[in-house]
């Protein structure tokens, strides 16, 4: 008996962005970081736990009719440092790039220190610098070193 023909699990998009090589299970966190929530207008395709030659399993996100800018996608490097971003125009890959962790994060993660002024009703966004030791809160000097996904705003 012959093998069933290989087919795409989610169909190609005509225009938009494909984020590939997201660690398995992190697709929804990636969307959260990008600010793409239930209220969004974009048509989304999400595939999780897809077989990957490199990582065993991975997630893929496709966003139709929206080309993500570099500063938008760099933020996802926090949880998906190996992700690749493909900008699609007329079904073809127009541009392909990796992600780079930015030096400063504004309003992306919540400070783990309950006593930090950024966790109050003040009119400010959280501010972190990315260091070797972890994410350093520029208000209270605490470090966020683990469960970064759990602290994403």
């Amino acid at each position: 008996m012959s093998e069933p023909p290989k087919s795409l699990q989610i169909s190609p998009i005509r225009n938009g962005t494909v984020i590939d090589h997201i660690p398995a299970g992190e697709a929804f966190n990636v969307l959260r970081i990008l600010g793409i929530t239930r209220a969004t207008k974009e048509t989304l395709s999400i595939a999780t736990n897809v077989a990957s030659a490199k990582a065993g399993r991975k997630d893929i996100v496709k966003i139709e009719n929206r080309e993500l800018k570099k500063e938008e996608v760099d933020r996802i490097a926090l949880i998906a440092p190996q992700a690749t971003i493909n900008i699609i125009r007329n079904y073809l890959v127009f541009d392909k790039k990796g992600v780079q962790i930015p030096k400063l994060l504004h309003g992306v993660v919540k400070c783990p220190n309950p006593g930090c002024i950024s966790n109050t009703n003040e009119p400010i966004q959280s501010r972190f610098e990315v260091t070797k030791k972890g994410l350093h809160c520029l208000y209270c000097d605490w470090y966020l070193t683990e469960d970064i996904a759990g602290h994403i705003i």
Binding site: N113, G115, C116, I117, S118, T120, E122, I124, C137, L138, Y139, C140, D141, W142
Partner: peptide, 13 residues
């Protein structure tokens, strides 16, 4: 003087 950490840094803004 303020009970929250980072309050003075916020004040500078």
């Amino acid at each position: 003087r303020h009970p929250k950490e980072g309050a003075a840094r916020l004040a500078t803004e």
